[in-house]
Amino acid sequence: MPPTKIPDFTDNEQYKLSHTLATLIGEYGERDLDIATGFFSPDVWKIVGDSFGQLGALRLMLGKEPDMPQDRRAGTGPLLPPAPAG
Score class of each variant (00 low, 15 high):
Met1Trp: 00
Met1Thr: 03
Pro2Cys: 00
Pro2Glu: 03
Pro3Tyr: 02
Ile6Asn: 05
Pro7Leu: 02
Phe9Thr: 10
Thr10Asp: 01
Asp11Ile: 01
Asn12Ser: 11
Glu13Gln: 12
Gln14Lys: 12
Gln14Tyr: 10
Gln14Pro: 04
Gln14Ile: 06
Tyr15His: 09
His19Ile: 04
His19Gly: 00
His19Asn: 05
Thr20Arg: 00
Thr20Ala: 03
Leu21Ser: 02
Ala22Leu: 12
Leu24Ser: 01
Ile25Ala: 05
Ile25Trp: 09
Gly26Ala: 08
Gly26Asn: 13
Glu27Ser: 10
Gly29Arg: 05
Gly29Gln: 09
Arg31Cys: 05
Arg31Gly: 05
Asp34Ile: 14
Asp34Ser: 15
Asp34Met: 14
Ile35Gly: 09
Ala36Ile: 15
Ala36Val: 15
Ala36Ser: 15
Gly38Asn: 14
Phe39Asp: 14
Phe39Lys: 08
Phe39Ser: 12
Phe40Asn: 06
Phe40Val: 10
Phe40Ala: 06
Ser41His: 12
Pro42His: 02
Pro42Gly: 09
Asp43His: 13
Asp43Arg: 14
Trp45Ser: 01
Lys46Arg: 14
Lys46Phe: 11
Ile47Asn: 06
Val48Lys: 03
Ser51Gln: 13
Ser51Val: 08
Ser51His: 14
Phe52His: 07
Phe52Val: 09
Leu55Pro: 06
Gly56Ala: 09
Ala57Gly: 07
Arg59Lys: 12
Leu62Tyr: 04
Lys64Leu: 13
Asp67Glu: 09
Asp67Thr: 00
Asp67Leu: 13
Asp67Phe: 13
Met68Val: 02
Pro69Trp: 01
Gln70Phe: 14
Asp71Ala: 06
Arg72Leu: 05
Arg72Ala: 14
Arg73Lys: 10
Arg73His: 09
Ala74Val: 12
Thr76Met: 08
Gly77Thr: 03
Gly77Pro: 00
Pro82Leu: 12
Pro82Ile: 11
Pro82Lys: 13
Pro82Thr: 11
Pro82Tyr: 11
